[in-house]
Every structure is written in structure tokens, then in C-alpha cells.
Amino acid sequence: MVSPGIVVSVLLLVSTVTANKLDFLLKFLAETERDEASLRYLQERQEVTTEHTVYGPLCIAVSYKLFLNPLSWEEARQACEDDGGMLAIIRDQTVHQFIKDYITEAKLKSSIAQNGKGLWIGLNDKEEEGRYVWVDGEVLDSDDPDTYAPWADGEPNNNEKKDSNGQDCVQLWKSRDFAFDDAYCENVVDKGYICQYTECDPTCAKCA
């Protein structure tokens, strides 16, 4: 069962389209009357249950939920799987930017700052230092210039000050505009997390 917390559902197009993918997304939202006041729209769609508050969804194809209740990376990975998804995979600047824009518009930064100062995503180098692997098994190829890997300045650094095992799990770091950052996986600072779901939400008005 997913732990109590705030959940935000955002559905994004992750297939490769044109160079103006973000413009396409915003145009789509405008055409469906969802960009003028997205926050108001989300609040109107708010559902309150005994477990969590859900905002959304904004619909295109693939859904992401932002859970703000802090967990360790492994607990977050398990929570996503228990909820029918996986920790988020962000291989594309458009998806990354759209999530960041949504966090800003939904005014979630202060809540994230109070819950671990970041959001776990599905990337780690727990098995081999420096070899980052997504939860779907694909290796992040840092040597490939086409690989999307927006690390914060000076990261990853595998800091061992608070844990001799180093930092093996990746977050979107609030303090660095939600850039990638390696962080301690557990027993130091728990964080919120982002789950990814492969199926379009059935409440969506339109799915690509």
C-alpha cells in the first residue's frame, strides 16, 4: 500500500517528436483548455481519500505521480511498484522540464524543501560505483553525447561524509533547480519521490 502523502499526477508525452516538443505539450494543453490556469484546473480535479490527496491529471500519454511523503530510495522504489508503476525514468529534457514547470506552477517547492529537499527518481549506481542504471535495466551511458544526464555542478561526487557506503541513489535536487544529484540511499535523509506509469490514466479526456 502506498504510504500517506501528497500525490500529484502529471501525464506527459515521452516519445520522440519534434525539436519543439515542449511547445507541442503547451499547445496541447491550451487546446484542451488546461494551460491558462493549470493549478486551478488541478485543484478543481482534486480528490481526497483516506490515504492521500491527488491533483490532476493532465493528460497526454504517460503518467507521473509526485509523492511528497519522505521515504528512503528503496522504500520509494517498492512503493512505486506496489502502486503499479516504477520510480521515474527521465531520459528526455522535455519530460524533465515539464515536471519542473509543473512543480513550480503547483507551488510544491516549499513542501519538497520540507521533505528531504529532493525527489527520488529511478537511477542508481548501487551495484557498481559510477555505473548508473535505470530501474528498467538500461545503463546511463555518460560517454554518449546524446545521453540526457543533467547533473548538478560537481555531481555525482559519491560523498561519504554521512555514510561510508557513499551516495548511490539519484534525486532531483531542489537546491539545484531539480538537476540530477547522487544522494545517500537510506538512513540519512528520506525524500519524496516520482513514480512512472506506462498506461494512460482512464480519467483522461484524451490520450495520444
Rank of each mutant, 00 (worst) to 15 (best):
V17P: 10
V7R: 13
T94V: 08
L140Q: 07
V139I: 13
K162E: 08
P150L: 02
S3K: 06
K21Y: 08
E36L: 03
D177C: 07
V133E: 07
L58Q: 04
G5T: 02
P156M: 04
Q43Y: 15
I99Y: 09
L39V: 08
N165H: 08
P145R: 02
C169H: 06
A149S: 11
E138Q: 14
W173Y: 15
K21D: 14
R45E: 13
C207A: 06
Q46L: 07
G192V: 01
L42Y: 15
Y132N: 01
S110W: 12
G84L: 03
Q167L: 05
K27M: 14
G118D: 06
E33H: 12
Y193V: 03
C200F: 00
N165Y: 00
I99K: 07
S72L: 01
D141K: 12
L39F: 13
E138H: 14
D163A: 04
I121G: 01
G137H: 06
K191W: 06
T203Q: 12
S15G: 06
D182F: 00
A183S: 15
G192A: 05
D163G: 00
Y64T: 09
T147F: 05
H52W: 08
S72V: 05
L71E: 02
V48A: 15
Y55H: 10
R176T: 14
S63D: 09
A37Y: 11
V95K: 04
H96P: 04
F24L: 15
L11P: 08
L71I: 00
A37H: 13
W73F: 02
M86F: 12
V135K: 02
K206C: 07
P57R: 05
L26R: 14
R91T: 15
C80A: 05
T147K: 09
I6L: 15
E127K: 12
N157C: 07
K117Q: 11
P156F: 01
Y64H: 14
K174D: 09
T32V: 02
Y148K: 08
E138Y: 01
T147I: 11
K65G: 05
S3F: 10
R176P: 02
Y148G: 10
P150K: 02
W120T: 00
D23Y: 04
S142E: 11
W173L: 01
A61E: 04
S3Q: 08
G122N: 09
E33T: 01
L26N: 03
L26A: 11
D35Y: 02
F24T: 11
F28N: 14
A37C: 07
Y184V: 04
L172S: 00
C185D: 06
Q196P: 06
R91F: 02
S164R: 09
W73R: 11
D83H: 06
Q97T: 15
S142L: 14
F178P: 04
T32H: 02
D190F: 00
S38F: 11
K107N: 07
D35L: 03
W151N: 13
D125V: 10
N20V: 10
G130C: 02
Q97D: 14
Q43A: 06
W134F: 15
E75T: 10
Y41F: 14
P202T: 12
T53W: 10
A205W: 08
D201P: 05
P156Y: 00
R176E: 09
S63F: 00
A183C: 10
V135Q: 10
D163V: 07
N115D: 10
S164W: 11
A113G: 09
T49E: 06
F180G: 08
C195T: 13
A183P: 03
S110C: 03
L12I: 09
G85R: 11
V54Y: 10
G118F: 04
M86I: 15
T104V: 12
T147H: 08
